[in-house]
Amino acid sequence: MYSPSDTLLLRRQPSRWLGALLILLTLLGCVALYQSAMPALPALVCGLLLWFHCLWIWPRQVSLRHADSVTGLRFDQEGWHVLRRDGSEAGARLQADTFVSALLTVVRLREPGRLLPVSVILPADAATEDSLRRLRLRLRFSRQRWAAAE
Results as ranks from 00 to 15, higher is better:
R85A: 03
M1C: 14
L9P: 05
L104H: 02
T98H: 00
H81P: 03
L135R: 08
D76K: 04
R110N: 10
V106S: 04
W56G: 10
L135H: 01
Q61M: 12
A149Q: 01
A127M: 01
S131W: 06
S119E: 15
A126V: 03
R108I: 07
L49D: 07
D76N: 15
W146K: 14
L18C: 06
L9F: 15
E89Q: 15
L41D: 07
G72A: 09
L10A: 06
R11V: 05
R85S: 05
P42I: 04
T98C: 04
R74S: 10
A96L: 12
Y2V: 13
G19L: 03
S101E: 07
W17G: 09
L28V: 11
L27F: 10
Q77G: 10
M38A: 09
W58M: 04
E150K: 14
A43M: 07
S88N: 14
D86E: 11
L21S: 13
Y34Q: 11
R84D: 09
R140P: 08
R16F: 13
R11D: 07
V31D: 13
V45Q: 11
D97W: 13
L25R: 08
C46L: 15
V62D: 02
R133G: 07
R110T: 14
F52I: 13
G79M: 03
L135G: 04
P39G: 11
V31R: 09
R16D: 09
A20D: 13
L21D: 03
S131H: 06
C46G: 08
P112N: 12
G91R: 00
F141K: 12
L115S: 06
R133A: 12
R138G: 00
L10S: 02
E129A: 15
A126R: 01
D130W: 11
A148M: 15
R74H: 12
L55N: 08
R16K: 09
P112Y: 10
E150G: 15
V70H: 07
S15R: 02
R140W: 08
E129K: 14
I57R: 05
L115I: 12
A37Y: 09
T71W: 03
R145N: 09
L8P: 01
Y2W: 15
E78L: 13
L115T: 10
V45K: 11
L139N: 00
G19S: 07
E150H: 14
A124D: 06
D6L: 15
L50H: 07
I23R: 09
W56I: 12
Q61S: 08
V100M: 01
R136L: 05
L50P: 02
A40E: 15
E111T: 09
L137T: 10
L33R: 02
A32W: 15
R138D: 02
L48W: 11
V45P: 03
R11Q: 12
W51M: 13
R145D: 09
R12H: 07
L49E: 10
W51Y: 10
T71A: 12
D86R: 05
P59M: 05
W80N: 02
P123W: 00
L48H: 02
G47S: 13
L9H: 13
L44F: 08
E150N: 14
D125S: 04
P39L: 02
L41K: 06
T98Y: 02
D125Y: 06
E111W: 03
P39W: 01
D125W: 01
A148K: 12
T71N: 07
H81K: 13
S69Q: 09
